[in-house]
Simulated scan of single mutants.
Amino acid sequence: MVATPIGNLADITLRALHVLQLADTLACEDTRHTQSLLRAYGIDKSGAQLLALHQHNEQEAAQTVVARLQAGQRVAFVSDAGTPGISDPGARLAFAVRAAGLRVVPLPGASSITAALSVAGAVASGGADSGFVFAGFLPVKQAERASAVQHLAAEPRCVVLLEAPHRITELAQALAVLGERPVTLARELTKQFEEITTQPAHSLSAWLDGGAQRARGEFVVLLHPAPPPENASDSLRVLQLLLQELPLKTAVRLTADITGAPRNALYDTALALRQADSKTP
């Protein structure tokens, strides 16, 4: 599994170039795109050495890859850009190869997700709410997208989204309900018109309207961690009251929805409260 540049061709790794040169078969999301990429690095592959493997034929093409591996060929897979298998074809291929008892080798490299995270300062370290959640592309339909945003609003960790240029305006409008929650937009990463900005969620649409070029290119969208509630005692009081009438998980979920407090922290608190109550004579 070979990661390829997401824009700047200089981001290819020496190991990737070596493997692409040695491969007997090069499975790729788009054979024309990959052939252009190979020519840029001076690598010559015949059309017979390229195997189309994309979202519409991945299951069938994966079996072709397995057969060629079993025949002793060296097979490499590349998506159009970045690391395969992450919102790109490759996951089914990796599963099929492993299921056949064969080895899948990762060649790390360019990734728009980690590139955006590295500069946004959006990932907390340490504590129950550290790390990030990858949510990928949200639903296209307005009602389903709005529901997904409401679900993510309760997520205390950084949330990573991806979006295409023709839908970024609709996504910005949907995220406006998050109010002051900081959101980083990273577009055209590693390319000539790369742009990274952090805005309150309610200001995203205005920022996009500030220039015709701002809505162009592929986007990584980072929802920064939800800020802690202003008064922790309020969330504790609500949790205590709900625990008297409701099951633990329901009480935690409602408290998080009402107060905005992190659900993981509320769950730990609820367990401690229940344990304390059980020990009370």
Rank of each mutant, 00 (worst) to 15 (best):
A3W: 10
A3F: 07
A3C: 09
P5Y: 02
N8W: 02
A10S: 15
L14Q: 04
A16I: 09
Q21D: 15
L22V: 08
L26K: 01
A27P: 04
A27F: 01
L37I: 11
A40P: 01
Y41M: 10
G42C: 05
D44N: 13
S46M: 04
L53D: 10
E58A: 06
A61I: 04
A61N: 01
A62N: 12
A62I: 14
V65W: 00
A71F: 03
R74N: 11
V78A: 04
V78R: 01
A81L: 02
S87T: 13
P89M: 04
A91C: 12
G101D: 06
V105P: 01
P108M: 12
S111Q: 02
V119L: 05
A120W: 06
A120R: 01
A120P: 05
A120D: 03
A122I: 12
A124F: 08
G127P: 06
A135G: 06
K141S: 11
Q142I: 01
Q142F: 05
S147L: 12
A148H: 08
A148T: 03
Q150G: 15
H151A: 15
E155Y: 15
R157P: 00
C158Q: 06
V159P: 00
V160Y: 03
L162P: 05
E163H: 00
P165N: 08
P165M: 12
A172I: 02
L175M: 11
L175Q: 06
R181L: 12
P182W: 03
V183D: 06
A186S: 14
R187G: 07
E188P: 05
T197H: 09
S205V: 13
W207K: 07
L208Q: 08
A212Y: 04
A212W: 06
Q213L: 05
A215H: 10
G217P: 07
E218S: 07
H224N: 02
H224F: 02
H224W: 07
A226M: 02
A226I: 09
E230Y: 00
E230R: 10
N231M: 07
N231Q: 13
L236A: 15
L243W: 03
K249L: 08
K249T: 11
T250P: 01
V252D: 03
T255H: 09
A256H: 11
A256C: 15
I258T: 15
I258M: 13
T259Q: 07
A261I: 09
N264D: 11
A265I: 12
D268H: 13
D268L: 11
A272M: 09
L273H: 10
A276F: 04
D277Y: 09
D277N: 09
P281H: 14
